[in-house]
Simulated assay, not measured.
Amino acid sequence: MTNSHTPHAPRARRVPRAAATLALTALATLAATAPARAADDTMPNVNGKSLSAAYQALHNNKDVQLQDGRGAGRHVLWPANWKVCAQHPQAGAPLQHQKVKLTVVKSRELCGNGR
């Protein structure tokens, strides 16, 4: 009796659906190049709000410049853990051709104005 075992071809690796969705979302975010805008093209008031709420008020446009309010140069990896301390332009200002800049700190930290 002979052993006629034949090696199997290596299985193709499958990318999990969640990873593929995350990658496509990241690419779509990087592709956005228009300045952030509210529905009526005016800057909403996002001071004191979570960064997630600020993104929602700006219709999830991630083309927003973020600045660490503590001056430590930290990067935001999870917006739900951060809050807005200052914004430019100010609430109500027209957003035509303006970049939005938000100064943020971690949610448990105080802003420079004590909030």
Results as ranks from 00 to 15, higher is better:
94 P>K: 13
89 P>G: 11
25 T>Q: 06
37 R>G: 06
106 K>S: 12
77 L>M: 06
91 A>G: 04
109 E>C: 03
94 P>V: 01
36 A>K: 04
33 T>K: 14
95 L>Y: 08
68 D>F: 04
77 L>S: 14
48 G>R: 12
34 A>I: 00
79 P>N: 01
115 R>G: 11
34 A>W: 06
30 L>S: 07
100 V>F: 11
38 A>Q: 08
87 Q>W: 02
31 A>K: 11
29 T>K: 07
44 P>K: 04
20 A>D: 09
55 Y>G: 04
50 S>I: 05
20 A>Y: 05
29 T>Q: 11
26 A>C: 03
100 V>P: 13
45 N>T: 10
66 L>S: 09
34 A>G: 12
103 T>L: 07
101 K>F: 05
50 S>E: 00
35 P>S: 15
92 G>M: 03
31 A>L: 07
104 V>C: 10
39 A>E: 12
88 H>M: 04
72 A>K: 13
104 V>Q: 11
23 A>D: 12
82 W>F: 08
69 G>I: 00
68 D>S: 05
42 T>Y: 00
29 T>Y: 00
51 L>M: 06
29 T>P: 01
79 P>D: 02
83 K>G: 12
34 A>R: 13
22 L>A: 15
67 Q>Y: 09
55 Y>R: 08
71 G>D: 01
95 L>E: 10
60 N>A: 07
36 A>E: 02
51 L>D: 08
108 R>G: 07
93 A>M: 06
96 Q>L: 12
39 A>C: 04
56 Q>M: 00
38 A>I: 00
31 A>W: 08
29 T>E: 11
92 G>I: 02
